[in-house]
Write a protein that binds this DNA or RNA. Structure first.
Lengths: 333, 333
DNA sequence: CTGTTAGCGCCTTCAT
DNA sequence: ATGAAGGCGCTAACAG
């Protein structure tokens, strides 16, 4: 009296057809006489038969499962992308194997390998950076991989992003127009990181255009956490900065609160712009101004792109840049 | 020149052994002479062989994959539990198929079925309520299922929780001691929902103990969103309530901000206690007092319990109640 | 339109 | 300690 599973074979017997026919109706193959189809269908739900996806995967070499690598599910930025990914995946009947990478290179590679061994049909990668090792693995992978919200500096790997460079530049330019000379740039504490570099480039470009000399002291590399934002507030304030662009929402909230605790009036005495427009940005007082990437859409479009690649459709452009907005709210004047 | 996959068979040939032996070394079966084992291992990494998990799953009837049903990944409460689940799952070599249910009964049942068809070894369910239909499916399932942060009013299904009733009672009692007579209770807009009922019971118990008559008008059933919290602020304030217990953090933040916007001093004129201690609660000004369930642990313990059940170990207690704390922070005096 | 026949890659007795 | 052989449940030609 074990797992008394009922198979395609049982159905075939009960319906007086071959298993091939059952397989056909299950897979919606049109080559089945309506009458036969109905008979099979009846038996199927009489027996409460459910196809075994594992067996199907072995035989067809398709698992209708995609892997999703995420740094941390409790990070609202990535979770929002994941939401878009999941919805489109569901729409296309794919299931998702989710794996937290902790933004740890070693773990990422390990995760990638277990995903391969699980025979996923495709992989969606989210992360702030792409290390050379990981890049190498991705490039030589036979399994389709798409980056969501992550840049590949070499522009070789399929990806969906916004133009971080331009967005950041636009924000900084506006800040400069508002009269700021010393604008802090708060970002992740990592070197050689593509997406961050792009943002930094935008920051520098804006300064240069305005004839302001880039001051390395105003670039704050911190862990992207609430706490880090809160504690860096004093340093930023003391450095004489009167505005800041922060690449992460949680960190922005921390910085904002840290500033307020120091008695700094925002936005009167200090203007602050965040970067992700996760729902956190609307929960503060004053509410945060921010670059607003279409979070859900980045995930959704990335997943859609992946389905196309898995499906071997013609891909016009495998590096998609989505439009963004800038929400000027209450931490700016 | 297709998916030139290398199989256990290739390894066997190269190492001059049978595939059975290769299988043994791959699975750590001790019945292999060290010399042979080494030879096989060498070939394995020379050929860069990776076992095909799908084939393995078919043959062994174990997929080392568990399904996780979550209402919404962008909800920090559930995402925090998921973090605990994922870490322990990884520790025990399980992968996770994540599925958003949107707290929608129909979708939940559908998701449950696709999880079954994928032959997951076990399932972790998160959600606020357990509808009768879903309960029925779970009870008759041959696949082990554990509820994380969700109560089963019948106490039949394995689960990991805190004592919501007691926690709420304790909070309300303290609020009453602080002199409050009219305490609002903000909760999900659902009737007959176990987790809601338990909390409401605690609320009522505390009132009764203090001889305060329960007033249905002070129970606010709203969608558990930031916006709902913000908009209900005025009604609560006008109703003359001077304190509130809210069952969701995002809603709490909304209520807090709504109150502040109305010019109500918190905590001087209004005390507020939230329920989940997600990281949101520390991002407000003033920071939120809250019931503090061990979020990560609930997920971790639930996953651990699931591994035991999957492993057919002896289970002493399949309904685990974890201790909680109450963080009296700055929205209370 | 339907049935037959091979596998898919691996695990697992059962012998040896 | 190792090999041989029979599935696991299903898909996919290939016949008819």
């Amino acid at each position: 009296m074990e797992k008394q599973t009922i198979t395609i074979y049982d159905v075939a017997r009960e319906a007086n057809v071959s298993m091939a026919t059952v397989s056909r109706v299950v897979n919606g193959n049109p080559n089945v006489k309506p009458a036969t189809r109905k008979r099979v269908l009846d038996v199927i739900d009489e027996l409460d038969y459910r196809p075994n996806a594992v067996a199907r995967g072995l035989a067809s070499k398709k698992t209708t499962t995609v892997g999703v690598i995420i740094p941390d599910v409790t990070n609202l930025y990535f979770a929002s992308l994941a939401r878009g990914i999941d919805d489109i995946a569901t729409m296309y009947k794919y299931n998702i194997i989710l794996a937290n990478s902790d933004q740890n290179n070693h773990k990422e590679i390990q995760v990638l390998n277990t995903l391969f061994s699980k025979q996923v049909d495709g992989i969606l990668y989210m992360g702030n950076h792409l290390t050379p090792e990981l890049r190498a693995e991705i490039v030589r992978s036979k399994t389709p991989i798409v980056l969501a919200g992550t840049m590949d500096a070499e522009h070789e790997i399929a990806s969906v992003n916004i133009d971080f460079n331009e967005a950041t530049r636009e924000v900084v330019e506006t800040l400069i127009e508002n009269g700021h000379k010393k604008i802090a740039f708060v970002t992740a504490a990592m070197k050689n990181v593509a997406s961050v570099d792009f943002r930094l480039e935008g920051y520098k470009a804006a300064l240069e255009k305005a004839g302001i000399k880039f001051d390395e002291k105003l670039v704050y590399e911190v862990p992207l956490t609430y706490h880090a934002g809160e504690s860096v507030a004093e340093r930023i304030h003391k450095a004489g900065a009167t505005a800041a662009v922060v690449t992460d929402d949680e960190t922005s909230v921390g910085l904002l609160n840290g500033l307020i605790d120091l008695g700094v009036k925002v936005p009167e005495k200090f203007e602050l712009v965040s970067s992700n427009n996760s729902k956190l940005t609307k929960m503060t007082r004053p509410i945060l101004s921010t670059i607003a990437p279409p979070l859900y859409d980045i995930g959704a479009v990335a997943m859609r792109l992946l389905t196309k690649i898995m499906n071997k459709e013609e891909i016009v452009d495998s590096e998609i840049t989505l439009p963004y907005k800038i929400e000027w709210r209450n931490t700016t004047k």
